[in-house]
Structures are given as structure tokens and as C-alpha cells.
């Protein structure tokens, strides 16, 4: 019986097992090997032991800058994204006219190509002619230069990140739709208020989805790259030089793929540790239906 179960399990999992063996495994391990090599992309890699890691921790101040930047981003963007995403999904779960139109609107930033949204934001945040500073000016406040100001560049990008919350909003929505109506009915019979229903029925029931978005949010923001690459290129004064951006420059501009691989594996260890801790807390707050 147990053997049969094992076999069934492996059979159902076989696509991903084959995928790991054939496509994912080799590049994954190859990058680990490369992190111990000097590899300039054009010539075969040569083994240098721990040299890349040594340089990383002792001779590259930008490594620490980029790590700090990405931590800053993660610490703010992930909780804000979850709070806003859950709240928005709950509003969009309401049974009112035109709700599908609202849902579509809040998902728009996730549909429109990044190139278009980036240019839009460059314009909105433009210190002189942008909407944000125009509004501030009307209220008598002189706005900062946003992406041009080392103090405001990261908050600007975080704000844009929260604006692009549509993807996780959809996932929360799917989670909300999964909550059995009977639970709400039972709560109503018990005379629970709206807030109590949210607190004791809705939130606990979507914890598996919140957990998912928390883990994916962490993984995603540690690799935050695209908007910074398109809009700021790491500036001003390295204030938006995020880890993945520094890594990309090392790999494809400075041709230090071995070094970039070492950077990637350091990030990997950090994020695996963070993720493992999050998984460990699962038992305390995530409610699966058993």
C-alpha cells in the first residue's frame, strides 16, 4: 500500500521531476560551479576557489550598498503590497453593480506593458511637469525631484510597486471566492459584526493565499530589477542600485559572470533562510482545511 502510494506520488510529480532533471537542474548547478570560477563569458571558466566570495565580502562596497537597497525595498514593499492587496480584494469581492469593471481597472497596471507604465511614471513623477508635483504645487507644497533625489527614489519605486498589486489581488480574490458561504451564514447566525466576520472568517480562510503571496513577494522583491533598470539605472548616487541590478551589471556589462554567480548564490542563501523561517511560522497562522 505504501509502495503504491509512493509510486502514485512520484507519477503525479513526474513532470516537475523530469523538468528538474532535464532543464532546471543543469543550469542551476552550473551557476553554482561558476560561482567558484572566473568566467568572462568569452573564455572557458577557470577555477579560483573562494576568490569571488572573498572579493564580494571584502572588496566590493557596492555589494553592501545594493544589499541595503534591496532590504529597504523588501521591508516596505512586501507588507504594503499584502495589506493593500488583501484590502482591495475584499472590496472587489463585494456584490455591487459594475464590480467586474472595477476588477479590470485595478488589474490594468498588470496588463499594460512595463515599457508603457514606466514612461507614464517618469512623466507623472517629473519634478516640473508631472502630475504629482502639480497637485502638490496646488496645495502649496514644493514637491521633491522624486526619482532624481536619493532620499525619494526608493519610496517612489515602492509606491509604484504597490500600484502594480493587481496580480496578487487576483490571487486573493480567487482565495476569497473559495470561502464556503456556509461559514458566513454560521457567523451571521451567531450575530457577528462585519469586522468580526472579516477577523474570524475571511482572514483566517485566506491565510494560505496570504502565505503564498508573502513567500512570492519576498522572493520577488529580493530580485527586484525591471523598473530600476528601465527608469533609474541605479542612480541617483547608487540609491536604486538594487542587488539584482548590481548583479546584472557585473554579469553582462562588466563581463564577470563568475562573480555574478557568486552574488546570486549569496542572495540564494539569504532568501532560502528567510523563506525557511516563513515556512516554519506557517503552523502558527496559516489555516489549511483539515
Amino acid at each position: 500500500m505504501a509502495r503504491r502510494q509512493n509510486l502514485t506520488g512520484w507519477l503525479f510529480a513526474s513532470p516537475v521531476v523530469i523538468g528538474l532533471l532535464v532543464f532546471t537542474g543543469y543550469p542551476f548547478l552550473a551557476s553554482l560551479y561558476l560561482s567558484f570560477c572566473e568566467y568572462d563569458i568569452f573564455n572557458p571558466p577557470t577555477w579560483v576557489g573562494l576568490n569571488n566570495y572573498r572579493i564580494l565580502f571584502t572588496r566590493d562596497p557596492l555589494f553592501w550598498t545594493s544589499l541595503k537597497n534591496v532590504l529597504y525595498y523588501t521591508v516596505f514593499a512586501v507588507p504594503m503590497g499584502i495589506t493593500f492587496g488583501v484590502a482591495l480584494a475584499m472590496l472587489l469581492d463585494a456584490k455591487i453593480k459594475g464590480i467586474s469593471v472595477y476588477r479590470t481597472i485595478f488589474f490594468l497596471p498588470s496588463i499594460v506593458p512595463v515599457v508603457a507604465t514606466s514612461v507614464l511614471w517618469l512623466w507623472l513623477l517629473n519634478p516640473r511637469i508631472g502630475l504629482v508635483n502639480t497637485l502638490l504645487r496646488l496645495t502649496g507644497v514644493a514637491g521633491p525631484t522624486w526619482l532624481g533625489d536619493p532620499a525619494w527614489s526608493k519610496p517612489s519605486l515602492i509606491f509604484m510597486g504597490v500600484w502594480g498589486v493587481g496580480g496578487s489581488m487576483i490571487i486573493y480574490l480567487a482565495g476569497l471566492k473559495d470561502i464556503p458561504v456556509t461559514l458566513y451564514e454560521a457567523a451571521l447566525v451567531d450575530g457577528a459584526s462585519t469586522w468580526q466576520r472579516i477577523r474570524h472568517v475571511t482572514l483566517p480562510m485566506i491565510t494560505p493565499v496570504i502565505f503564498f503571496n508573502l513567500v512570492m513577494g519576498l522572493i520577488g522583491s529580493f530580485q527586484y530589477f525591471t523598473q530600476a533598470f528601465i527608469m533609474t539605472g541605479g542612480g541617483p548616487l547608487d540609491s536604486t542600485l538594487f542587488y539584482a541590478l548590481h548583479l546584472f551589471y557585473q554579469a553582462f556589462m562588466y563581463l564577470k559572470m563568475g562573480y555574478a554567480s557568486a552574488m546570486a548564490w549569496v542572495l540564494f542563501v539569504i532568501v532560502v533562510a528567510v523563506t525557511a523561517v516563513v515556512f516554519k511560522t506557517q503552523g502558527r497562522w496559516v489555516h489549511y482545511g483539515r
Partner: peptide, 17 residues
Amino acid sequence: DEVDRELKNTRVSLKPA
């Protein structure tokens, strides 16, 4: 100083110790 350091780091890549 940064560029000097980068040159040193890159030299390593060309002639591994």
C-alpha cells in the same frame, strides 16, 4: 580607488592565481 580595485579584481579573472 574603486576603479583600481575593479582592475585588480578583473586581473584575477584574466590570470587566475
